[in-house]
Each structure stands twice: as structure tokens, then as C-alpha cells.
Design a protein around this nucleic acid. Sequence first.
DNA 1: AATTCGGGGAA
DNA 2: TTCCCAGAATT
Length: 351
Amino acid sequence: MSPNEFSQRVLGWFDAHGRKQLPWQENPTPYRVWISEIMLQQTQVETVIPYYQRFIERFPDLRKLADAELDEVLWLWAGLGYYARARHLHRTAQILCEQHGGTMPLDIAILQQLPGIGRSTAGAILALAADQHQPILDGNVKRLLARFGAVAGWPGQSRVQTTLWELAERYTPVQRVAAYTQAIMDLGAMICTPRRPYCAACPLAEGCAAHAQGQEMAYPEPKPHRKRLVRATRMLLLRTLEGEVLLERRPPVGVWGGLWSFPECPLEVDIAAWCQEQFGLTVVVKPPWGMIRHNFSHFQLDITPVPALVSGPAGVVMEGERFVWYNPCHSTDRGVAAPVKRLLAALATEL
DNA sequence: AATTCGGGGAA
DNA sequence: TTCCCAGAATT
């Protein structure tokens, strides 16, 4: 789809369905658009509206904001979050009053140097309030463009970000930039929603690469969850001839603190020798079971269960605070971790 | 290049 | 619970 057709479709949709009654859309001066853009960073429209109205009523222009106490600005901001935004707003108002004659500079490079104004916000101010040919790239537009172009990768990566900016530049028209900018954001917020996008109502569906693949939800790719550390361990299923299995109470602190679990044997040592040394038990080691993967919030534990038969006297291990011979068929609840519970259940059915 | 700032709303 | 939201500054 050509850039011209893209923007024409977006504008056509906007004329019929776009939002045109938002508070900052009436009398969209650079100052009012600036305030709204800052408030709308990472904050939803419905949340912003009452804050915006109070803020504009108290600080109707740049000078009033610059002359105010920071505390009052912060007070009006309370509840919006990201309070650095309020500090930057106040500071920028003072800078503009001292160095720019109390007016908003309509220059992308100057705007971007002001506290709290990055490329997208600067572009939005100039596009919406001055109809300048400037692209924006907020969360809604990122999602829409990532789908339209089937842009692979997580938008948090700088390379993906660069690609999306290039798309934003390509499709931003020269005419009617203000309407287009509002429209592309509205499309992202109302049609190209994060879940269940309304492709049937989308004017861009025809040229949308993700839609063509039937893979709208595959873009943009989610943030890759932090690489969890992988730990591996062996859990020994030491069984007596009577079918009882040895459980050990874990230390009170750390993972599964105080819960009962199987003895864990280091990976590199010989199991039979280790059992003799640790417990005085003579065992016959059997082939290991399939690995069990257990996920914690901060790491992943790969458990290899190793069954072994106690061939000598089991009584050498004294039951008490730390050890117990446990019959897996009698589900006397002992407080065991989830994977241990699975293994106990497997032992019970094996009998 | 990855983290941080944050409260609110939706699924 | 998790994810996401009209992002920018900081390390």
C-alpha cells in the first residue's frame, strides 16, 4: 500500500469515526497540546481528562505555570504517577519564559532538548498544534505499524525502534498532518487494540501484513522475559522394600523453606557412595526418570528424579525433625513443594 | 542497550 | 495475577 493511500484511508476513517471532542482538541495551542502530551505519556485518556481540566484551569498559560511553586504543580499531579513529568513540565515552563520569551518554540530540535520532551512528544506538539510535517511514535502507533508491516522483534530493542520510526516517517502525510496524527493514534487505541483488534472495521486491513498472515497477535512481540538462571539438581527417591521413601525437611530459609522434599544429590558425585556417606545407607541405584522442569520467578530448576532401592537396614536413618520415611500411598499431608507432590503421586501409582 | 519511574484499567 | 498505556531520562 502506497504511503498516500495509507494516509488517505486513515484520514477517511478519522472523518467518520475519530475522536474530535477531547478537551485538548478544542483550541489546540502548542501550550495546551504540550500539557496533554505529557499527561498522556503512559497514561490512558480517560484517566487524564479530569487532571487536564484542573491543570489548565489553574495554569492557563506558560507564564502562570512558570510562576507557580513546584509543590502546587506536584499537588495537581498527585495520582497520575511518573512525577518526574510534573517536575520537567515546571522546569521547561521556566526555561521557556527565561530564554524563549514565554512562547513554545515550534522547532523540533529545540523542543527535543527541553526536559521531558523526546522525539515523539516533540513531533506530536508540532503536528497537532502547528500542522508541521512531523511523525510520532507512541505505544498505539508502534503497535499499529508493527502489525501493518509485520515488524519482527520487541519494540524495546533499538533496532526495532528504528524500523518503526522509518515506517512512521514514510506514512506521515504532508497535508492534514494534525488530523492524520490524531487519527493514527485513535486507530491504534480504538481499532488496532492490544488484544482482539477489530480488523473488520480497520481501513488498513487490506494492506496489513499481520492481518494477511492471520497473525495480528504476533506483533508487536512481547518483551522477552528475563533469562532465568537454570539450575539442575537430582532428587533421590530412596525406597525401602516396604515402599516407603525418604523425605528430608528443607532449611527454614531459602527455596521451599521448611517444606519436605527428597534428598538432593550433587550432579557430579556417585549416588551410591553419596548415600553411604550421608545416610549410612546401602542402595541400588536404578535408571533415572525423565527430567521435571520447575519454574520460579527468578530461576528455573531442572530436576532429575533418581529412584534407588535401599538394600540394607533403613533404620540407620533416624526419623525426627529432619528425616522421615514416608509412605506415598498414605497422603498424610506433610507440606511438600509442588514437584515433590508430583513425584510422590507418581511413586504411589507405581506400587 | 537495558532499567526505571507508577497508578489505573482490562482481561 | 499480568499486561498495557499519547515515553523520556538515566546507568
